[in-house]
Structure formats: structure tokens, C-alpha cells
Design a protein around this nucleic acid. Structure first.
Length: 579
RNA sequence: GCCCUCGUAGCUCAACGGACAGAGCGGUUGCCUUCUAAGCAAUAGGUUGCAGGUUCGAGUCCUGCCGGGGGCGCCA
């Protein structure tokens, strides 16, 4: 049991003794920023004051006094002093052994259970992310939200959910025709059609679009029992498949492995869409107007009604998306679904939520996280920018557009700074934050990227542990680890390091609650910082280091290694043994 | 015009409604016979866009402005 939980019990017990009806949930403990405010602090007196009609100062003093008077009666031996302080905080000062005890707890639980939770209880959650249209290669923004989605999935998994990662492939509709038209135009050396796609990849694809390719598409379509399709559609379908393969390769490079790439075309061909419409119709939520089929989404929180089937008989994107979510919830039975959208699609959210609600899915089962736009400044790709670098000479932010072909490719960025740097960089700040990425700076700073700071801590630990073996320090004996062994850890650097390390369970909990994996990044950087300080001031192995100090510090080092491992694995960043 | 979102140091970003708003980069200055200097330490830098309100307490919550981004299709 963590010290924090034990201390909560103590406070609870005291409050009950004093005759106050409170639940343990109301008792909030935090580690104060300032050392003089103690190891733990609670604001319970401030919260309770009004209810019990006492002044906060009076109440906090009473609580502090009661704790002090009864200190020997608690099954809790770590309290050194308790102080009430204006405007009503109760601060607890503990013996250092409480930190050592936390380390023992960490080892007891081990890397698989420490800071892991069973909130999901094995229920199924699906995280859908990236889902970029297969009309062009992934750009940096896709990668940004992609790393977020993947890290979120890892976080959910650590919190007891059975996670599926999924990519929704919009491989049908007008955009695929436009893609096909662009390919054909490029092949014939004609002007690109209005609204066509312009990137370099179009001409590359066009060059390899031959009769065999056409035959391949025709064969597939015949197998699917579809009717005749136009030359434009053929080219579009073919190109989309090729592009999707390219997208998969890029995702795999980044360590983002989807359980499923879900094809919109296949779903439509399966008749799932019609079934979805029937379900909505059963609830009397559809009506016809001007030849189109409408969804009464305004009755479910949307700002207006939406068209599901156009007057030309084609389905809208929304119709397909509702059917897709029907598939997720009703057919596949996910208990929870989290969609990660770019901010450019957030207008779609109320309609989708209305659709999902209309299908009878419990409210709240679908959560949508909106990734703010990633704007780019500066240039990248020193060799040739032909494959899509955007760069304005002025260095002004350029809006990325697949259609305009001025995207900065995710692959280029990975080539430039590496996988770990991309992952950590994209997980540095909240997804709610619209970030500006200065590509010149990123390139220039690639050697001093924050990721190296963290990885370097790990490499140093690995180095110490190797050296320990060389010097013949026996393996760590976990069974007999006790407070006496760790008691010599008293250096401020050591205590700070432990203090930081043991925040991990709380960090993961709040990262989970807020769907904010970047909190893990922030923590991992802080931990690395504490470790570097410790490394600098506290030698682990050496002729002038006492044996019991070496032993205790080896323990501490191992604990930090576990913490770094948990953190970096959640972020999908590798842990180098040497650098 | 309406809806969503963001506004914190020169730059990029942190801060469960808590105590004096913190890091990194960039600037200045120190530290390598020692387990990796991709490191450590010191120093400078702020009226948290503005104005009200709620609260014992507001960068955080509410209202209104101002500014950036996104969205308001029988596109996806």
C-alpha cells in the first residue's frame, strides 16, 4: 500500500474521531512544491470549514493537534510532525524512511504492476486514429496525432483495457474519383482537373499505372460482384491501394501497428450501410426532402439536420461513418470507442454523436479527441524537396494541403530526426494545444532533442549496471530488501529522485483520466533531470564509496530504470543501453 | 454572423481550483585524472491577451470583449 493511501486513512480516522462525516474521496493529498510545506499536504480543512461552520485556520489546527496527540495510535510510523498553516492547510512532515518504503513497494509490485491499474477490467476499447484519406502520403500532422493515438492506446492498456487500434480507410466516394482523374491526367500529360491532387507522388503512381494494374482492379471488382466501373474509378481505386500500402509502411516505421485497417468500400459493399439506415428509420429519425434522405440529427443535439443519402443515390460521409460506428458498437461490441480527429473535422462530431446515440449506444461510450492543428515553419529535406516540402522562403507558416501537394511528409521528418525524436516531440505537449513546429529548429536541434536527455539517463543507468557486474557486485536480492538497506539514501539528490520516481502512479492515473499521454512525457523528463543530478553528485561505485552506499544506490538506480522503462514504453520511445 | 478551440518568459511548451507561475531552447558564466560532459551548476528573462464575476484562494471555473486557428456542403 502506498504511503499516500495510508496517510489518507489516518486523516480519515482523525476526522471521524472529531465527529465529521467525510469520505476518503474528499480527502485530497498533494506533495507541496515547497519543501518547507512538508512531504504531504491536505486542504481538507479549507474544504470542510463551511460545512462544519468553523474557520479553516481553527479547523486545520484542530486536525493537526488531534493527529499529533494520537500519533502513537496509528498503524503508521512515518509522521515526524504535523503543522497547520494559514489559510488552512495541514502539512505532514515525514521521516525519510517513507521514501525508502515507497521504493520497496515499487520493487514488490515490479515493472508490470507498478503504476498499472485495472480500471478497464479487461473490457474492450477501440482507439481509431490517423484515418487519413488514402489520397496521399502521411504528413507531419498525421504523425503527430498518430503518435498520440498510439500512446493513448498504450496508456489504456496499462489501465486494464483490451485495446484495439484501428485506421478507417475512406477509400470510396468523390475523392477517390478525383484521385483517379489526377492519375489519368498525369499519365496522359494533361492538365490536372479542378480540385485534383498535385503531389509528386501522383506522377510517380501514374507512371506505373499500366494495363496490368487496370486488370488487377477489374479482377478484384468482379470478385466483389460489383458492376462496371469507370476508368477514373479504376485508377482511383488502384492508386488508393498503393497509397495505403505506403501509409502502412510509414506507420510501421513509427511503431504504430494497427489491428485493423477498416475499408469503407468493403463496408458499403457488405450492405452494412443499408442496415444502419434501417435502424435509424425504425426510430423514425429519417425523412425525405428534395430527393435526399435526411437524418433528424437536430433532435439529438446537432445544430441542424444532415443528409445521409444524396438525391443522386450516393451515401454521404456521415451515413458511412454512422454505419461504421454501428459496426464498432453493435456488431463488434466495443464497450468504449475513442476517435482521434484533427481539428479540421471537429464540425463533424455533433452529427456523429447524434448518429451513435440514435443507434441506441449508451451516451458517453464514444469519446472524440480533437487534435489541434500542427503548423509548420521553416524547411526540411536538404536533398530534394520534390517529394513534398512546403517551404515558403519567408519562413511563414504554410497550411498543409494534400491537394496542393505542399505537405511535409512524415517520412521526411522521420528521415531527418529519427523515430524516437518524432515520437517524443509529438508527445511533448497536450493534444489540445495548437503547436507550431519550426522545422529548421527541429533539424538543428536534433542532437539536443529532449529525447536524448531522457535516453541518456537510461544509457547511464545501463552503464552503471554493467560496471557493477564488472566490479563483482552481487545481483540485487529482492527477497531480502528492507528499510535497513535503503536507510543510507539521505542525500538531497537521492531523496529528490525517489520523490519524483514515486509520482508515477499518480501521473499515469491522471494521464489516463485526461487522455493525456503527454503527462507521462513531462514526468519522464523530470525523472531524467533528477537522475542526472543524482549521477553528478552521487557516485554509485568507486573506491571511496562505502559498500552499503553502493548497494543502496544500485537499488535506487534499478528503481529509476524501471520507472524510465514504464514511461518510455508508454510513449513508444526506445531505451538505448549506450549512446 | 453562429459553433468549437487556443492565448503563460524572446521561442517551444508545463502548472489535480492551492502556498512564491515552472522547464527546455536561445543569452551570460563556471564544472571533465573518477560509473558516458548528449551531463551538472549559477544568472538574466512575467501585470498568465483585456475587463468583470464566483471562491478562503483563479493561469485554471463563469460572463463579456480582443487576437490566432478550425468548422459552419446533397465534400470527405
Amino acid at each position: 500500500m502506498f504511503i499516500k493511501d495510508q496517510l489518507t486513512q489516518v486523516i480519515h480516522q482523525v476526522l471521524l474521531q472529531m465527529g465529521f462525516e467525510v469520505s476518503t474521496q474528499e480527502i485530497h493529498l498533494e506533495q507541496p512544491a515547497l519543501p518547507e510545506h512538508g512531504d504531504w499536504s491536505t486542504n481538507i480543512a479549507l474544504v470542510l470549514a463551511k460545512r462544519v461552520k468553523m474557520s479553516p485556520v481553527e479547523l486545520s489546527s484542530a486536525v493537526a493537534k488531534t493527529v499529533e496527540d494520537d500519533i502513537s495510535s496509528f498503524a503508521f510510523a512515518y509522521i515526524k510532525a504535523v503543522k497547520a498553516v494559514s489559510p488552512g492547510f495541514v502539512n505532514f512532515y515525514l521521516y525519510n524512511s517513507w521514501l525508502h518504503q515507497e521504493l520497496i513497494e515499487l520493487f514488490k509490485q515490479g515493472e508490470h504492476h507498478y503504476a498499472a491499474f485495472d480500471i478497464g477490467k479487461g473490457k474492450a476499447v477501440q482507439v481509431e486514429f490517423i484515418s487519413a484519406n488514402p489520397t496521399g502520403p502521411l504528413h507531419v500532422g498525421n504523425g503527430w496525432w498518430g503518435c498520440y493515438g498510439d500512446a493513448l492506446a498504450r496508456l489504456l492498456s496499462r489501465c486494464g483495457w483490451m485495446v484495439s487500434r484501428e485506421y478507417y480507410v475512406n477509400d470510396t466516394g468523390g475523392q477517390i474519383r478525383e484521385l483517379g482523374a489526377s492519375i489519368l491526367a498525369a499519365k496522359r500529360g494533361k492538365e490536372l482537373p479542378e480540385g485534383g491532387y498535385k503531389g509528386e507522388y501522383i506522377s510517380l503512381l501514374a507512371a506505373s499505372y499500366d494495363e496490368a494494374a487496370q486488370a488487377e482492379v477489374e479482377g478484384d471488382e468482379a470478385a466483389d460482384g460489383q458492376g462496371a466501373i469507370t476508368a477514373v474509378e479504376k485508377a482511383g481505386i488502384w492508386a488508393a491501394k498503393r497509397i495505403l500500402e505506403n501509409i502502412k509502411t510509414t506507420c510501421n516505421r513509427l511503431g504504430i501497428i494497427f489491428d485493423k485497417y477498416y475499408s469503407q468500400r468493403e463496408m458499403e459493399q457488405s450492405g452494412a450501410l443499408d442496415q444502419s439506415l434501417k435502424d435509424l428509420d425504425k426510430r423514425s429519425l429519417l425523412y425525405r426532402d428534395e430527393g435526399a434522405l435526411w437524418f433528424k440529427s437536430s433532435s439529438l443535439g446537432d445544430s441542424r439536420d444532415r443528409v445521409l443519402v444524396k438525391s443522386d443515390g450516393e451515401y454521404t460521409y456521415l451515413a458511412a461513418d454512422i454505419a461504421y460506428h454501428r459496426d464498432k458498437f453493435i456488431l463488434r461490441g466495443f464497450d468504449r470507442v475513442i476517435d482521434v480527429f484533427g481539428a479540421d473535422h471537429h464540425g463533424h462530431v455533433p452529427s456523429l454523436l447524434a448518429g451513435v446515440e440514435a443507434l441506441g449506444v449508451q451516451k458517453g461510450s464514444l469519446e472524440v479527441k480533437i487534435g489541434q492543428m500542427v503548423s509548420l515553419v521553416g524547411g526540411i529535406g536538404t536533398k530534394s524537396d520534390a517529394d513534398g516540402s512546403n517551404l515558403s522562403a519567408t519562413g511563414a507558416a504554410v497550411k498543409m494541403s494534400k491537394r496542393e501537394g505542399n505537405v511535409v511528409l512524415l517520412d521526411s521528418l522521420i528521415d531527418e530526426i529519427g523515430i524516437d525524436a518524432v515520437r517524443l516531440l509529438s508527445l511533448l505537449s497536450s493534444i489540445d494545444q495548437a503547436v507550431t513546429l519550426d522545422l529548421d529548429l527541429v533539424k538543428k536541434q536534433s542532437m539536443e532533442n529532449p529525447v536524448y536527455y531522457v535516453q541518456y539517463a537510461h544509457a547511464r543507468i545501463a552503464s552503471i549496471q554493467k560496471f557493477a557486474e564488472v566490479r563483482g557486485h552481487a545481483g540485487l536480492d529482492r527477497v531480502n530488501l528492507n528499510l535497513n538497506t535503503l536507510n543510507v539514501l539521505r542525500h538531497p539528490r537521492e531523496l529528490d529522485l525517489i520523490r519524483c520516481l514515486i509520482e508515477l502512479p499518480d501521473i499515469i492515473m491522471s494521464a489516463y483520466n485526461e487522455l493525456a499521454p503527454f503527462k507521462v512525457t513531462t514526468w519522464v523528463r523530470k525523472l531524467a533531470g533528477c537522475f542526472h543530478g543524482f549521477y553528478h553528485d552521487c557516485r554509485v561505485i568507486g573506491d571511496d564509496v562505502a559498500l552499503e552506499i553502493t548497494e543502496a544506490r544500485l537499488w535506487l538506480t534499478e528503481a529509476v530504470r524501471i520507472g524510465l522503462k514504464i514511461g518510455l514504453e508508454l510513449l513508444g520511445v526506445s531505451l538505448p543501453e549506450s549512446m
